[in-house]
Amino acid sequence: MDIKVTINGVKKVFNADPGEKLLDLLRREGYKGAKRGCSTGDCGSCAVIINGKLVNSCLIFAGQADGHTLTTIEAIGTVNEPHIIQRTFVEEGAVQCGFCTPGMILATKVLLDKEKDPTLTQIREALSGNLCRCTGYVKIENAVIRSADKMRSE
C-alpha cells in the first residue's frame, strides 16, 4: 500500500505492508534517528512528530500516517549544524548512551514551539513519554530550561 506523507518538509510516497509499523517503515527508508526501544509505547525512543504532536512510531501503523505531516530527528539539525536544543543537551551532559536522545530532543522541540518559558512541571509533562536509563533526568531537565533561555534570547 502507498503511504503519502510530507516528511521533514518533503513530500514522499512510501510502500508499506498492511501490518507494518511506522517505525519499521521509517528505519527502512533511512530515517534511523527513530530508535526501536520497547516496541510497546513505553520508552519514547521511537518518537516522531505527526501534525505537531509527539507520538510513538512503534505503536502506529504506517497506514495511519498516510496524508499527514511527519518530522523526525533528521530535520532538527545536523552533525555540523546542530539545533540549539541539541547543542545544549551536549553542553549540559544530558546525553550519555544517546539512545533516548532523539526522542528527548523532539519532545523538547514540541514543548518549546508551544511554551517559550516552560515551568518544570510542563517540562516533566512534555518528557513524560520518554525514558532515559542513564542520566537520571536532572541534566535533561536543565538542558530543556537552558535551551528555552537560549531560544528566547535569540
Binding site: 504532536k53 509527539l54 507520538v55 502506529i60 519532545a107 513524560s128 513519554g129 520518554n130
Partner: peptide, 9 residues
C-alpha cells in the same frame, strides 16, 4: 491516560 505520547493518539 498514559504519558503524553500515548494521549496524543
Amino acid at each position: 491516560c498514559g504519558p503524553i505520547t500515548i494521549r496524543n493518539i
